[in-house]
């Protein structure tokens, strides 16, 4: 069965995120008050053929650990859809 996996990778909390800061300043300049803690990362979508949703998730987690996220600087989260 094919599962659709949605992966979010963001800079680790506490690490400087200059892109997030720049966008935060731009939002403030546009008059959006109260917007803060902007973090900019990337979204990755992929299809995985697996026997179960658990197997698809395990496979996607390994992809994140080994390539899609840098364990030193980034955190990831993922959602598996049938």
């Amino acid at each position: 069965m094919t599962y659709r996996v949605h992966i979010r990778v963001v800079p680790r909390a506490g690490l400087l995120d200059p892109q997030g800061q720049a966008v935060e300043h731009a939002l403030a300049a546009l008059g959006f008050e109260g917007a803060g803690d902007v973090r900019i990362g990337r979204a990755i979508e992929l299809a995985i053929d697996a026997r179960s949703a658990d197997a698809a998730e395990a496979s996607a987690r390994e992809m994140c650990e080994r390539l899609l996220a840098n364990p030193v600087t980034e955190d990831y989260s993922l959602v598996v859809e049938a």
Partner: peptide, 8 residues
């Protein structure tokens, strides 16, 4: 690791 320059 090497990440984006602080001044972008």
């Amino acid at each position: 690791a090497l990440v984006r320059n602080d001044r972008l």
